[in-house]
Design a protein around this nucleic acid. Structure first.
Length: 803
RNA sequence: GCCGGGGUGGCGGAAUGGUAGACGCUACGGACUUAAAAUCCGUUGGGCUAACGCCCGUGAGGGUUCGAGUCCCUCCCCCGGCACCA
């Protein structure tokens, strides 16, 4: 009896799959297609850690199952290889990032191969490959041509450690998402993408896709849609007016003052009329000094200055109200000005209390002298002229119509989502394919000149002034304007890492196409992605960005549908054995290579699927790995007990059908742990019986194959079964046969289990009762009591209610 | 503060309103061995009992039900997202 030698056996099958191109995908339209996608990694210098294989194995299981179900499956892998680590390494070692990247990719690929994933490696993509980023640049040019890419001088989030600007999405709790350093505000000239123009569709189309709910919620949250009205307040004795956005136009009669942001342009415009200009300027300077970090702190004590010399007129009653400047009003949201309704807004209430401003109650129901009353469900309008007596909803409608009629306001929808800061002042990214000409302005380079490659530089060091290392490459920078032929300079900022990943799933459908990012035929056949699994951390970054790009590509007729992914799921993190996040500094990193070597790829895969709820974080356990190895060892030994038989034996028939059903369903619903548990249960039963026949063994091997593809394929061969395992059909089950004919059920007395009986499924209640009553324990429990009621749920429970 | 998701043995975790703790790990006992490892067999929520059994038990407290981990109400705690967003 040969031992289970995982090392030789796994290598053997990986070689066979490789040589036979077993998992190579073609556009075979005779079969239904299934596009399974996992997020492609950044090939870091550290190599894979055991967290990576979790989602890969999960979708590999689904992909392998789908193939056996007759689908044409696309399950690709690639490299999101632009990014800071390779560049920082280049700064230190002077080795070109491309060289480092290549090395890292080779390592990652070897590690992935050793895990036996059924990726179609012929479709591998790499975002740093000029043949790839040519199309990233092409998409950027299209965005630019459609007016969706623009350069703007504006305050952005600046990470002084990474020395790059960050998109809003990359700032977490006031710190850089990548390195954790505190983020500062810097005014910079930046390329921006108008994702805000797609805000409404990005929310609305979530209804069409099958994403886990928390992803949808987070995206909606992030986009932050709110409905209200823009209302115009005239500034007394001037031709100017201040427009505010409010979600509570119903409270207009309670607006007792206005507040504008320190950056509001009216301050500049009307500075001649402002009596306390010096004080205002000092306040502005103070506000500017506040870093993001200071703002993130919950120090919400209200500060502000009254603008002397200006007053506004409330449009509903022409009452004169004061105007204030305060940093609690943000220039970047709404109009940068608000009407303050201290009676019904907590921030305004605090501000009013701080500066002793009038508070008027306009919605009855609370006590506005104590706190702002923000309830909108109940409450009636008071002190509000023609709105008096209405509920909040009706009042909103009435006032909005009134404002519109008078030309004082319009209904408005606002979003928290900001445009996407798209410039990075770094070397290792896609060059932005634009030149600046003093006559023609910003001009896209002609399509024939794509890809625009990175020049060789000597120093990768970014500058503190925020200029890209490319700026020093004068040979590269200086060029001619494609429009007028005059002198022009190239843009020296590069694209952020999120660029290449915003469309990579399209490239997989046709990765070698040099005429288009992918052929329309292939896009029509493969898109949309049927199942995309990835990390929650990408919900408001990659996932949102790529949905935006995809919608844009749809609008310009490049892709067939509006949404790139039909289904999105997410995996939990794998923590170190000490329950902390795995990291080098914590010294708790488990290297998959070691696990593969000692226990095998099948064991690693199986353990990662068995470890716990797929969607939750879970600590690694070496003992748990051993348990899975033990199981596979036992499965291996099973081969010596297999007996002839072309149909399930009577003893196992129901169990076989139950297991097929359970495993088939569980693989589809991310419940890999319970699928494996069901296989273990079946195995234990077989072990008890001491025998298994060929029909049962075949089914067992097929069900286990997606999780442990090597050992099952080997056993299939060793047992002399026909063909190769991966060519078999997924087993089917008969619902009727999943139901065991005889079953033990509990007998309860007053809801407490007092014993159990074995019943036949089609036993009548009479028959079941006879058995229940014959049970000594039941006899004792009901002795001397009166039976009030009996409930019999066939196959479940027999409950006797006594008094 | 708002919005999600949770709270079940020593641990990871199972349970269409129907025998709570499947499956795995750990621990303990036994077999095998000169011995250990590996392997195999058994026990493993707590308490009481010589035993048959009985009582308690799914964050806390109420409720609905013949029956609640599951449904309803109140509260506590943990994790994640958003957060001076008008």
């Amino acid at each position: 009896m040969a031992r289970y030698n995982h090392q030789s056996l796994e290598q053997k099958w990986q070689k066979i799959w490789d040589e036979n191109e077993t998992f190579k995908t073609t556009e075979d339209t005779s079969k239904p297609k299934f596009y399974a996608l996992v997020e492609f990694p950044y090939p870091s210098g550290e190599g894979l850690h055991v967290g990576h294989p979790r989602p890969y194995t999960a979708l590999d299981v689904v992909a392998r199952k789908r193939r056996m179900e007759g689908y044409n499956v696309l399950f690709p892998m690639g490299w999101d290889a632009f990014g800071l680590p390779a560049e920082n390494y280049a700064i230190k070692t002077k080795i070109h990032p491309a060289v480092v990247t290549e090395r890292n990719v080779a390592r990652f690929k070897e590690q992935m191969r050793s895990l036996g994933f059924s990726f179609d490696w012929s479709r591998e993509v790499n975002t740093t490959d000029p043949n790839y980023f040519k199309w990233t640049q092409w998409i950027f040019i299209k965005l630019f041509e459609q007016g969706l890419a623009y350069k703007k001088e504006m305050p952005i989030n600046w990470c002084p450690s990474c020395k790059i600007g960050l998109a809003n999405e990359e700032v977490v709790d006031g710190s850089c998402e990548r390195c954790g350093h505190g983020v500062e505000t810097r005014v910079k000239n930046q390329w921006m993408l108008k994702i805000t123009e797609y805000a409404e569709r990005l929310i609305e189309d979530l209804d069409e896709v099958d994403y886990i709910e928390r992803v949808k919620i987070q995206q909606r949250n992030w986009i932050g849609r709110s409905e209200g009205a823009d209302v115009s307040f005239a500034i007394k004795d001037t031709a100017e007016s201040l427009t505010v956005f409010t979600t509570r136009p119903d409270t207009l009669f309670g607006a007792t003052y206005m507040v504008i942001s320190p950056e509001h342009p009216i301050l500049e415009k009307l500075q001649d009329r402002i009596a306390n200009l010096e004080v205002i300027k000092a306040y502005q300077a103070e506000a500017r000094k506040k870093t993001e970090f200071e703002r993130a702190e919950l120090n919400h004590e209200k500060t502000g200055v009254r603008i002397e010399g200006l007053a506004a007129l409330n449009p509903v009653n022409s009452e004169e109200i004061t105007i204030w400047v305060s940093d609690y009003v943000l220039m970047s949201y709404g109009t940068g000005a608000i009407m303050a309704v201290p009676g019904h807004d907590e921030r305004d209430w605090e501000f009013a209390k701080t500066f002793d401003l009038p508070i008027i109650e306009v919605v009855a129901g609370g006590d506005v002298t104590q706190e702002a009353y923000t309830q909108t469900e109940t409450g009636t309008m008071v002190n509000s002229g023609f709105l008096n007596g209405l509920d909040v909803d009706s009042a909103k409608k009435k006032i909005t119509a009134w404002l519109e009629e008078k030309g004082l306001g319009v209904p408005k929808v606002n979003y928290k989502l900001r445009d996407w800061v798209f410039s990075r002042q770094r070397y290792w990214g896609e060059p932005i394919p634009l030149v600046h000409c003093s006559d023609c302005g910003w001009v896209a380079i002609p399509e024939e000149e794509l890809p625009l490659r990175l020049p060789q530089v000597e120093n990768y060091e970014p500058t503190d002034t925020g200029e890209s290392p490319l700026a020093k490459m004068r040979d590269w920078v200086e060029t001619t304007c494609p429009t007028c032929g005059g002198y022009a300079e190239r843009e020296t900022d590069t694209m952020p890492q999120w660029a290449g990943s915003s469309w990579y799933f399209l490239r997989y459908t046709d990765p070698h196409n040099d005429q288009a990012l992918a052929s329309r035929e292939n896009l029509d056949y493969w898109m949309a992605v049927d199942w995309y699994n990835g990390g929650m951390e990408h919900t408001t970054l990659h996932l949102l960005y790529s949905r935006f790009w995809h919608k844009f590509l749809y609008d310009i007729g490049v892709v067939p549908g509006t949404e790139p992914y039909k289904k999105r799921t997410s995996h939990g993190m794998i923590l170190g054995e000490n329950n902390e996040k795995m990291s080098k500094s914590r010294g708790n990193v488990v290297n998959p290579d070691d696990v593969v070597k000692e226990y095998g790829a099948d064991t690693l895969r199986m353990y990662e699927m068995f470890i716990g709820d797929f969607e939750k974080s879970v600590p690694w356990s070496t003992d748990g790995v051993r348990g899975c190895k033990r199981f596979l060892d036992r499965v291996w030994k099973l081969k010596d007990t297999v007996k002839a038989g072309s149909a399930y034996s009577e003893a196992l028939e129901a169990k076989m059908h139950q297991t097929i059903k359970k495993v088939s369903h569980d693989y589809e619903s991310l419940k890999f742990n319970t699928a494996i548990a069901a296989l273990m249960t079946l195995f234990n039963e077989v072990n008890q019986l001491g025998t298994i026949n060929e029909a049962e063994m075949k089914t067992f091997l097929i069900l286990l194959n997606p999780v442990a593809p090597h050992i099952t394929e080997e056993l299939w061969q060793v047992l002399g079964f026909e063909g190769m395992l991966h060519e078999q059909s997924w087993p089917s089950y008969d619902e009727e046969k999943t139901i065991a004919q005889t079953i033990a059920i509990g007998v309860q007395v007053n809801g407490k289990v007092r014993g159990d009986i074995t019943v036949n499924l089609n036993d009548s209640q009479e028959a079941a009762r006879e058995k229940a009553m014959a049970n000594d324990n039941i006899q004792r429990a009901i002795a001397g009591k009166t039976i009030v009621k009996e409930i019999y749920v066939p196959g479940r429970i027999y409950n006797i209610v006594v008094k």
